[in-house]
Design a protein around this nucleic acid. Sequence first.
DNA 1: TCGCTGTAAACTGTCGACAGTTTAGGGAAC
DNA 2: GTTCCCTAAACTGTCGACAGTTTACAGCGA
Lengths: 218, 218
Amino acid sequence: MTPPLRLSLAGQTVDVLRELVLTGEIAPGERLNEVGIAERLGISRGPLREAIRHLASEGLLVLVPHRGAHVPKAGADEVRALFELRTALECAAAELAASRRTDADVTRLREVSEESRRNYQAGARFPYRLDLAFHRTLLEAARSPQIAEQVRLVQQRVVLLRSGLDDDPPHQRASMDDHDALVEAVAGGVPDAAGEIMRRHLARVRTQMLADLTENPS
Amino acid sequence: MTPPLRLSLAGQTVDVLRELVLTGEIAPGERLNEVGIAERLGISRGPLREAIRHLASEGLLVLVPHRGAHVPKAGADEVRALFELRTALECAAAELAASRRTDADVTRLREVSEESRRNYQAGARFPYRLDLAFHRTLLEAARSPQIAEQVRLVQQRVVLLRSGLDDDPPHQRASMDDHDALVEAVAGGVPDAAGEIMRRHLARVRTQMLADLTENPS
DNA sequence: TCGCTGTAAACTGTCGACAGTTTAGGGAAC
DNA sequence: GTTCCCTAAACTGTCGACAGTTTACAGCGA
């Protein structure tokens, strides 16, 4: 009767470890001790190693031969390179969304966008979560599973890079304006406009992140 | 003195397995027996499992709980979805290449392109290798390591999908014309043109693959 | 005090074995 | 002859232990 263990130990461990990394509980630069973590999680090293390798393939960990895994700490170059990839993927997604969106998609996008604004005006605590929600809603509208999966991985790495950086309100406001413009381009079914707005939006976000990085090099 | 084993067993096994999958020695749909392969490779199951998981993260294998790994056999939907991703990545790469290429890049591109034509006129055996070489040379010119890595993975999956399909000459000729047009757009430094040519090129390749698939559904 | 060296502890890489699940095959019932 | 069930073999998931490498530290010499 108990939904016993739907996932394998290794599968569960992937989720646990991912959370530890993304929340910064395992800090960038920190090395992972296999026996220590295995004991802490109450499992053996086998499944843990599989989980570590998996997260490494997602870019959340870096493996060094005979020296184990550690959380990468990224500099400006990595941010720029990652945003080139993100831009390529999300611009394509925006264009596809403008081509394929349904009325239900547009409704959902408007809902997320409005929730962001309400949240913002109320003095939000975790606005970045809603930013992610918007981008993922847009992704659903694009109906391209392969692109969606890659965007999910890239956004995850962006979250990792953002850890330790705080969202400043003026930047949030600009982002929400971008989002609204995106919704209208998608609703209107104009792929080129949607792609171009996304490109500018991501350029703004990237610039902001680089500024945050230089003034607060973790 | 012997450069003994530069890579770990797991690392070597990744390369060996990858080759087995890409050459079709392990056919699409076929299930992988861990003990059998481990014995055949003369290693234990530990490193083999790591290699299997790694290839799964690259999309070359599919994992099913308690049922192990198997090579995915793809249908038309998968081809379409994969080419949406490939188009997003390679169009961006083409645009970046047109912005950032050096004279040396252009020279290399022309060399690869000319080698393809010579090969073709001589009645080539493995023209697809040269097609890949061209795309990778273009990728170097884009100087975007993140995009390059993702393109490498996607192209690998395309190779897997192509296994069992033969290149027909008329399609090769059209591809080479596309390549030449791409070289000129990149040499001229016109990102929009390069991106658009790449988009049309990939649309052609995709259409051809889909046609090959339906007439020869492996 | 500083730097070098050699040794020991710590850690990763690998292996073989056990436990739980899936799969295949034989036999009974219809 | 067909279907269902039951049993046994095969296979994946997990664990603990050993081997080789890396890292830290104590001791020695300058």
